Amino acid sequence: GYRKEQERLGIPYDPIQWSTDQVLHWVVWVMKEFSMTDIDLTTLNISGRELCSLNQEDFFQRVPRGEILWSHLELLRKY
């Protein structure tokens, strides 16, 4: 899972600490993992702090059909 990727690349476990690059890395990883092609990366060119401050409605406004990303983010925030 993504935890291995975080360990390998030194990405903080807590998404709130992610840099913009780390947010984009996570988005690309999830897209590959779940064979998603319809995500516009430019809408998530934000820091982890900004990402974690979005509520579900705001998130889906930025990322239509972003349910998998949202669920994955929720999982990461719990651990």
Rank of each mutant, 00 (worst) to 15 (best):
G1T: 08
G1E: 08
G1L: 03
G1Q: 12
Y2H: 15
R3K: 10
K4P: 05
K4E: 11
K4Y: 10
E5L: 04
E5P: 00
Q6V: 11
Q6T: 07
Q6H: 01
Q6W: 04
Q6R: 03
E7S: 08
E7V: 07
E7R: 08
E7H: 05
R8Q: 08
R8W: 05
R8V: 08
R8N: 07
R8L: 11
L9M: 14
L9D: 05
L9E: 09
L9T: 09
L9K: 11
G10C: 10
G10H: 11
G10E: 10
I11F: 06
I11Y: 06
I11N: 02
I11V: 05
I11R: 02
P12S: 06
P12G: 03
P12F: 00
P12A: 05
Y13T: 08
Y13R: 10
Y13S: 13
Y13M: 14
D14F: 00
D14M: 02
D14P: 03
D14N: 11
D14V: 01
D14S: 07
P15L: 03
P15C: 02
P15M: 03
P15Q: 01
P15K: 02
P15D: 01
I16H: 15
I16M: 15
I16R: 13
Q17A: 11
Q17R: 14
Q17L: 14
Q17N: 11
Q17E: 15
W18V: 01
W18Y: 03
W18A: 01
W18N: 08
W18I: 01
S19K: 06
S19T: 15
S19Y: 03
S19R: 08
T20C: 09
D21S: 13
D21C: 06
D21Q: 11
D21V: 07
D21G: 14
Q22S: 03
Q22Y: 02
V23H: 00
L24Q: 08
L24D: 07
L24M: 14
H25V: 06
H25G: 07
H25L: 08
H25Y: 14
H25D: 07
W26Q: 01
W26A: 01
W26L: 01
V27N: 02
V27P: 03
V27F: 06
V28A: 14
V28F: 09
V28D: 15
W29C: 03
W29P: 00
V30Y: 04
V30T: 14
V30W: 05
V30F: 05
M31G: 10
M31P: 00
M31T: 15
M31A: 12
M31C: 15
K32R: 13
K32T: 14
K32M: 06
K32H: 13
K32C: 07
K32V: 05
K32A: 08
K32N: 13
K32Q: 11
E33G: 07
E33H: 10
E33M: 05
E33W: 03
E33Q: 09
E33F: 04
E33V: 06
F34H: 15
F34V: 09
F34A: 12
S35C: 12
S35H: 14
M36I: 12
M36P: 07
M36W: 09
M36F: 10
M36R: 13
T37I: 06
D38T: 10
D38P: 14
I39A: 07
I39T: 12
I39M: 13
I39H: 11
I39R: 05
I39Q: 06
D40Y: 03
D40N: 12
D40L: 01
D40P: 09
D40H: 06
L41V: 13
T42G: 13
T42R: 13
T42Q: 12
T42S: 14
T42L: 08
T42Y: 09
T42K: 09
T42I: 07
T43E: 14
T43H: 08
T43S: 14
L44K: 01
L44E: 01
L44H: 02
N45L: 07
N45Y: 07
N45W: 06
I46M: 15
I46H: 01
S47G: 08
S47Y: 03
S47N: 12
S47L: 02
G48M: 00
G48E: 00
G48L: 00
R49D: 10
R49V: 10
R49C: 09
E50A: 11
E50H: 07
L51P: 02
L51M: 08
L51W: 00
C52R: 03
C52Q: 03
C52V: 09
C52H: 03
C52I: 15
S53Y: 04
S53Q: 10
S53T: 08
S53V: 05
L54V: 05
L54R: 03
N55P: 12
N55L: 06
N55S: 14
Q56H: 12
Q56G: 06
Q56P: 07
Q56M: 09
E57M: 08
E57W: 08
E57F: 11
E57D: 11
E57Q: 12
D58S: 14
D58Y: 08
D58V: 10
F59G: 01
F59P: 00
F59I: 04
F60P: 04
F60C: 10
F60W: 07
F60D: 04
Q61R: 14
Q61N: 10
Q61Y: 07
R62T: 07
V63T: 07
V63P: 03
V63R: 00
V63Q: 06
V63F: 15
V63S: 06
V63W: 12
P64Q: 06
P64K: 08
P64D: 02
P64R: 05
P64T: 05
P64Y: 02
P64C: 05
R65I: 07
R65P: 04
R65K: 13
R65A: 14
G66D: 01
G66A: 13
G66W: 03
G66E: 01
G66I: 02
G66L: 02
E67H: 14
E67Q: 09
E67V: 09
I68N: 07
I68V: 13
L69E: 01
L69R: 00
S71G: 14
S71Q: 14
S71E: 13
H72R: 05
H72Y: 04
H72K: 05
H72Q: 15
L73I: 04
L73M: 05
L73S: 01
E74C: 08
E74Y: 05
E74S: 12
E74M: 13
E74T: 08
L75W: 09
L75M: 12
L75V: 07
L76W: 03
L76T: 05
L76F: 05
R77V: 05
R77N: 09
R77D: 04
R77T: 06
K78Q: 11
K78N: 15
K78A: 14
K78R: 14
K78G: 15
K78F: 10
K78V: 10
Y79C: 11
Y79N: 15
Y79W: 10
Y79I: 10
Y79S: 15
Y79D: 15
